[in-house]
Structures are given as structure tokens and as C-alpha cells.
Design a protein around this nucleic acid. Structure first.
Lengths: 240, 240
DNA sequence: CGATGGATTGACAATATTCAAAGACAGTGG
DNA sequence: CCACTGTCTTTGAATATTGTCAATCCATCG
């Protein structure tokens, strides 16, 4: 049984052959530990690697000229992060950890090499990236067309579904390492409004929060409130 | 000189060899005409192709359960559309034309074939997709952290910059085939608020609108207002 | 113990939405 | 040619949602 999160990630999409597994694992040999709240790669920094998350949470962010911040993406164990910057000489978004995390840097040049040696993995990388993009589209919908309470509900349900795919026996409670300020910057709201909205969810008996852990009390109602449709998180391509 | 928009698109990123050009052109042999406001592929329809735009404008959209709509992406000549759905058996977004348009369907299965035969093109496809993703990130920032007037200004500047790359001698006026309702659904605002915001831009002497054509009167001020940073639209990878 | 970062609350202001109504315009059929 | 239709635009008034400012509380950590 492999330890590689990357392999797990890919296998969720399609079965792999042993040669492919070996190749993927070789890309994850050296993992590095980063403490909580560390900038792994700054905005406009040279793009030398992208990363796989072995453990912990991380995010991509953008700081605007006026000092405001937008969280672009939240990454969980098994995710690949920073793929979209590899098309640019300087990164257009920053990467940072949200908890202590173990990341596996993956030199960008070796991706080209991998594409040449194993077209099927190229294909899979392409799929993984397309999935990532689908999540972004969902985020666009969330930011553009939903009220604060729906945004928050949607975010929470998405996270729990995503956590469950590397951790199937997770119940509806999980540690949420995002302060209210970070939640606000993720959902395009103000910190204070997040606080009020979270209270509303509590008052409606939908969630329970204590000590950085959040429990979803009624996932069905949350899902309905958020108009959450899990289709975009489905992983089996079913055709490769 | 090739007619292929796809080739142009790729060449903006990196020089191509003649074999690669030939391969790309073969994928664009059969183009199809679609009239204005046609749904090219519905939401949740089987994903058989993706498309290259030879002429006209198109968009990706999503209809929510309550009937609201969000435009996810606007596509211009030379763009590749529908790439992110190819990871799913059923499309998660719809595709529609905004004007009469000439699209080149590209069977999804042949992408796999292409990856096997020409790893360098695989690489380029990957880059193109990463660019697309970068544009989405910019959209997330726009929706999450900007006021209505900035959103609109940002959108307009982005469009003119993108139009100029296939049409370098375009001045600051162009036909805008989006009704105010569509603009609203693109920027996550209400139709009425778009109207008022557009008026504000007019009153400030930043744009001029008549008969579906819009003219940017002061691109510098617009750019400053929108905090527009063109870095994400830069195309030359510079390292391939 | 004070210092710090996060959470919470209230009062108020800004921003955006909804509803309703009217004007502009192009296309259609008489 | 004109009346009729539908779509798009424009405007006002009232409302809802979200943001800003200021203060307090709470837990944690040195």
C-alpha cells in the first residue's frame, strides 16, 4: 500500500499501472514540513515548483493593492496546489499553509519530462487540473450568485465532502483552521458579516462551533440551503 | 500563413514546429456555424467535444435551481472553450454563443491520442488550460473583493486587452454583444445595478455607449479604477 | 500578569436588490 | 405605412443585504 497522496489522488480518477505509480511516487520523494501560516511561495515569485499536500491545509491567495485579501483556493491532503501558476514566469497568486503541513515540491521542469515519458499520466494531470477548474467555477457561482448564508453553507459542505474522500469515516465534525477573517476573505465578505452569518447558522440549528472545531448538525438542510450539487466533486472519470 | 485560430492561440505561447502545426490544424478541419444565442451544449449534457472559436463570441454559463444565471466565462476568437468539462461524463456548465459564431468541435477522445503522439502539444494544452484557470482566479477576485464599478471597469479592460491580441490594431471601441442582463450575470450583480453603474462610468467620462458599441475613453483611469493588472493575460511562457 | 489575536455585539452607513413603471427600439404582420 | 410585440434600457422609491467603526470579551501564551 502506497503512502503517496498523489497516487491516491490519481487513483480516485482512474486505475494506475505499477510503472505509473512508481513514476508518481518518485515525484513525491522529498517532502518538506512547513509550520502553520507560512508563505510557501509569495505572489510574483519565480515559479520553480508546484506542490502536493501530504498532510495539513493550505491555500492560494491574492493580496490586492489596497491591502485587501482574497483566498482563491483551499487545499486539503491529496490535492495538488500551484498548478495554474506554472504557465507564468512569476506566480500570480501566493501559496500559504493554514496549518502545519507536509508539502511535496515538484519541479516544474519534470512535468514536461513526465508528459514525454508517460502520456497517460499527462492525461490524468490534465483531468486533475480540469477538476480543479470545475471547483473554481463553483466558487465563481458561489461568489456571484449566492447570499452570505448560502455561501458559508456551501463552503462548509464542500469542505466536508472533500475531507471525506481521503478520510471516508469522518463524521460531520472537523477542525476548521480558518479564522473568521480568513473565511471572510474566502467568501468575499467582511469579517463581521461572517460572524453574524455563522451565528445565524447556529441559531437555525445547522452547525455547532467550539474551539476551532465545527460540526454540521443537519447536512441535508445545509445542502438544500446552499443549493449544493456534488456533481463537480465526483471523481471517477469513468471513461479513461 | 495558417487560418487556424488554435494555431495562433498556441503560437502566442511558444513557437511551433510544422508537424505540430499540422496536427493542430487537423483538429480544426470541420467548423460549424452557430447563430447568435444558441446553446451549443446544455448543462448536464454528455461531453463529447470541446471547441475552438474561429469567430464570434461565446460563453459558459450555469443556471441555478432558482432560475438565476451565472456567466462563468466569456470566450473570444482564438479561445478554447469547454476544456474543463472534459473531466466529467456530463457537463457541469452550459456553452452558448453570444453572437453568430464559427466553432470547431474537437472530439475529446482525440485529445488523448494527441497527448500520446505529441508530448510538446500536451504541454502546451496544459499551459493554455493554466492560463484559462488564471483568468478564472482573476474573476474570483473580481467577484469577491471589488465594488460594482470596479467589477465593470475590470471586465471591460480585460475584454479589450484580450480582443487586441487577435486584433492588434483595435482601438478603444468595440461592439459589446452582452445585454445589461448578461453583464449582470457575468459580474454577479442585478441588471438594474449594472445600468446605474454603467451610467456612473459614463458620467465620469470613462466610457461611451451607443448601439451595442462601447468606447473606452480613458483606459488609464479605467485601469486604475479597476486595479487591473495585466500580468495574468501575458502569454509568452518564455521557458518552453 | 499584560499582550495578543480572535470572536462578539451594537449602531450606523454604504452598497446593492426588488418592485414598478415608462421610454426606446427593432422586427412582424396587417 | 402603421400598430403591435417583445426585448432592452432607464429611472424612482422602498427595502434588504452587507460593510464600517468602535468597543468589549475571551482564551492563550509568553
Amino acid at each position: 500500500m502506497t503512502q503517496s497522496c498523489l497516487v491516491h489522488s490519481f487513483e480516485r480518477c482512474a486505475p494506475l499501472e505499477s510503472a505509473e505509480i512508481e513514476l508518481l511516487e518518485s515525484l513525491e520523494r522529498d517532502s518538506r514540513e512547513f509550520p502553520k501560516h507560512t508563505v510557501v511561495r509569495a505572489q510574483r515569485a519565480p515559479v520553480e515548483h508546484f506542490f502536493t499536500i501530504r498532510s495539513g491545509w493550505a491555500c492560494a491567495f491574492r493580496i490586492l493593492p489596497n491591502g485587501e485579501r482574497q483566498i482563491l483556493d483551499v487545499f486539503l491532503p491529496g490535492d495538488v496546489m500551484g498548478l495554474c501558476d506554472i504557465a507564468y514566469p512569476l506566480s500570480i497568486s501566493g501559496l500559504a499553509t493554514l496549518t502545519d503541513a507536509e508539502l511535496c515540491p515538484f519541479p516544474r521542469a519534470r512535468l514536461t519530462e513526465l508528459f514525454a515519458r508517460c502520456p497517460r499520466l499527462a492525461n490524468l494531470f490534465f483531468m486533475i487540473n480540469a477538476r480543479e477548474q470545475a471547483m473554481l467555477l463553483e466558487r465563481v457561482v458561489n461568489l456571484g450568485r449566492r447570499k452570505a448564508i448560502q455561501k458559508l453553507a456551501h463552503f462548509l459542505v464542500e469542505i466536508v465532502v472533500r475531507l471525506r474522500r481521503t478520510n471516508p469515516d469522518l463524521d460531520d465534525a472537523f477542525p476548521l483552521p480558518l479564522s473568521q477573517a480568513l473565511l471572510a476573505d474566502t467568501l468575499g465578505l467582511s469579517e463581521i458579516h461572517i460572524n453574524r452569518t455563522l451565528r445565524k447558522l447556529r441559531e437555525r440549528g445547522l452547525v455547532e462551533v467550539n474551539a476551532g472545531e465545527i460540526r454540521l448538525l443537519d447536512r441535508d438542510r445545509l445542502q438544500a440551503l446552499a443549493e449544493f450539487d456534488p456533481i463537480y466533486l465526483k471523481e471517477d472519470a469513468g471513461w479513461m
